[in-house]
Design a binder for these strands. Structure first.
Lengths: 232, 232
DNA sequence: AATACGATTATTTTCGAAAATATAGGAAAT
DNA sequence: ATTTCCTATATTTTCGAAAATAATCGTATT
């Protein structure tokens, strides 16, 4: 069995269309997360149609799903907008995410098997390849880093029993990602620190030290969120 | 200011279409919650189109939203199905809901004003009008009871600060509702007990006794869920 | 019998035209 | 100048036809 096939079912399947392009739902979500559209921006069908090269119906479907996920707001008869952001909301999302992530992590540590462990190490390695790069290179591949970072955190909790626990924590993670993005530009010099933290989290998790892993991950998330709050 | 206009913004707006009919998303969700379709049933567009008298695109939009909410599953190229149910999932949903509802209730008790209080009393009264009926009458108006019961629980936490807290707890409430429905037929004789519990919960909440209110509501939810688990 | 293949049917998915609705602009009335 | 009403424009929303895909069934081959 290859590592690839042992991958836990991901919350977001790749969903490539016939041409090998990511589908419009995924692309739109990525664009909102990475602030291609400012908060409150109207998402007109005419524009979106040309931008993503899909029909109106397909767009509506994607947009209404994103409204369920909280990325866009909808006012009947007046279309869709990118959801607003606020420091207050970031604080709340951070809080929920930490609670859920810690619960999920404990469950995963309790139930995870060898495949789960192995996957964590593999995914972490891919992440570290980018995090080890000098600042400029890292920035070039930022969108890739975002994806690897998401995969890493997901791999940690992939073995958690609760389906809804996983689902809710993933919902909150994606929301956090959007906020995390505002800190992208700041040339922190924290790259190294973050990379170290990821390593420590991985070690504690694989060593099945739930208390330590939870403590580390809480601090890790809280730190980055606090940074984002100050920049908001 | 009338009571009606002081109503807190509901998570689910009525969304009537031009003819005064509830929209397809709402109707479909209600039908799934109330087990009109068995779990795992395929939801074919041809059938749904005639049943709800809407176009295919509109249906797709509704169905993909319901998949975000967890009511239907989707397999690309093979359409939509009613999500499965299991005792295991019910246990998990109950657990999440209790956690969220208690947090939300504390926040609401802390921040709620006179409008919030008044609305609770009003909505509770409407609920009690049905719950006071003899068993047979109650069964006739069961779907109405479901709606009133939803409104009652929502009114309790309506003043909670956290938008996402409210959102997540509503998500879980709707899922619970689906499971709650399997207990409909059972002629329990618990109607009176439930009605009493609702009254006590209201009293504790309006009296701002957060500890008591949380204790009562936890017991209230746990009891009904346990009943449902046994019947599953 | 079992398998593989191709043709037929059933179903989903995509798309843009048409209907419904909201917005903007401009003339008339106060 | 402000409001009201009508017209023109812009935008959303709905719908079913057409394309793409999956399932079914019968026939041929081993």
């Amino acid at each position: 069995m290859t590592l690839e096939s042992s991958n836990p079912t991901s919350s977001r399947s790749p969903k490539m269309d016939a041409n090998g392009e990511r589908d419009v739902l995924t692309r739109l979500r990525t664009d909102i997360i990475s602030s291609v559209f400012e908060p409150e921006t109207r998402l007109k069908f005419a524009d979106m149609k040309t931008r993503y090269n899909v029909g109106i119906g397909t767009l509506r479907e994607a947009l209404s799903q994103l409204s369920s996920e909280g990325f866009v707001t909808v006012e009947v008869g007046k279309g869709f907008r990118v959801a607003p952001v606020s420091a207050e909301e970031l604080i709340e999302i951070t809080d929920h995410f930490i609670t859920l992530e810690k619960r999920a992590l404990r469950e995963a540590i309790e139930h995870g098997g060898e495949d789960w462990e192995t996957n964590i190490v593999a995914v972490h390695h891919r992440l570290s390849l980018i995090e080890g790069l000098p600042w400029e290179r890292r920035m070039e591949r930022h969108s890739e880093w975002v994806e690897r970072h998401r995969e890493f955190h997901e791999s940690l909790v992939a073995a958690c029993k609760g389906k809804w626990l996983f689902r809710l924590r993933s919902l909150m993670f994606d929301q956090l990602d959007r906020y995390r993005f505002v800190t992208k530009r700041a040339p922190d010099g924290l790259g190294g620190k973050k990379s170290e933290e990821h390593c420590e989290i991985m070690n504690a998790t694989v060593a099945r030290d739930a208390d330590l892993a939870c403590e580390l991950i809480e601090k890790h998330i809280r730190d980055t969120s606090d940074r984002a709050i100050r920049l908001l």
